[in-house]
Write a protein that binds this DNA or RNA. Sequence first.
DNA 1: GATGATTTGTACGTATGTATA
DNA 2: ATATACATACGTACAAATCAT
Lengths: 236, 236
Amino acid sequence: MTGPTTSADRRGKGTVVDAIVQALADDIISGNLTPGTKLDAQTMAERFGVSRTPIRETFGHLAAMGLLTHRPNRGVIVATVSSDDLSDLYEAMAELEAALARLAALRMNSDQRQTLLELHQDSVHLVRDGTADEYARYNQRFHALIFEGAHSSQLQQLAEATRHRLSPFRRAQFRLSNRVSKSWEEHDAIVRAILAGDADGVARLMRLHVQTVSAMSAEFVAEHQQATGAKRKANT
Amino acid sequence: MTGPTTSADRRGKGTVVDAIVQALADDIISGNLTPGTKLDAQTMAERFGVSRTPIRETFGHLAAMGLLTHRPNRGVIVATVSSDDLSDLYEAMAELEAALARLAALRMNSDQRQTLLELHQDSVHLVRDGTADEYARYNQRFHALIFEGAHSSQLQQLAEATRHRLSPFRRAQFRLSNRVSKSWEEHDAIVRAILAGDADGVARLMRLHVQTVSAMSAEFVAEHQQATGAKRKANT
DNA sequence: GATGATTTGTACGTATGTATA
DNA sequence: ATATACATACGTACAAATCAT
């Protein structure tokens, strides 16, 4: 009996592939899977109790997200992000966010300005009393509001994709010394510029803000280099 | 025997999926497949002499590239680019090119500046004597040189991907009235600003340049709507 | 290097869900 | 509202490429 009935309980929910994409993305982003590790479909299939077909599809999605690198006929490996790649990605992020902030200064409606201001002001207590996670959540919303305020969905999509790729590296920066209070001050200047409609000013401020994050990330990665293992030149 | 002989000639190259992705992307970009056309895996499988599995994967890649739209349980269709989407894409293009031009003004080395200047000056005769195709080729190289001069590979990749998506719409704009001479003048100002190292100035000029192209494209598309659009009823 | 083992890539079948007649 | 047709999602089978010996 080739019973394709598949023992997998069909949990009336979303697809198996999506669930595995999430799980593997988490593993990679959390650093649980170090860059360069080879993933083979067979093992993953067993680990998740499915066949190789959905695993292959999963690999495709993750490769499209830049988390895996696909080598024809040779399987996939966890993508290696060199420190050059990293600063390059941050530079793209800085320019994208600067462009979005500029547009936001020109286009945000009054509701959006109000919401941004409230979010930012309400967060002031996090600087002293909040956890790194709480601040990270506020930070996420802050940038998301600006993205939306730009009313430029293509640019927004590019920025979100880039932000997503960087998330593993941005993760822990708020644990650094007094990064939180500096970050909040930078946000403060950005909010003021947006409310004042100062398009060029806010672009400059946002670019600097992201560059600062980039430097913090690089510092953090350098400190934790032995853990990530990407210290060697690797390929390219 | 169900003849798994796989008639497909294995052209010692990469994977079948990659080849089909290329082929279909070309068909879509060249306008050979009109937006809204439904593609079903079965037919494509027959057309390319493969089974549905690689076709499925191909659809996934093309959807990720924005060339196909995936409607849950209703198959995929060639992505329809509404005129809103179009101006959105152009806006993203404008911001990306502006950012790259800004960086190019700051970072181009003297060889690159020299090459850009020569290309641009040598092209002056195309304004009066060249064909639209010749000018388009020069135009392509002009922008490519600026991309390279920015030394920012991630941003460059994003810009190239966006440029690629827009290519079907940018295609014929140089046939419009005196678009060529206006375009050349805009390029001229851009070259001067880059050579002068005027980062903010060139960003502004480039943004305006792409916005102009956007307006031309919209005009052209509006004029030719009957040709690209409803000529074939297709299946909807 | 050749050869067998491992693993990727592709073919194809079928159960289940979703839309449409 | 029911039936039919179709798309999706996943399984298994086998061919071809890579790798380890």
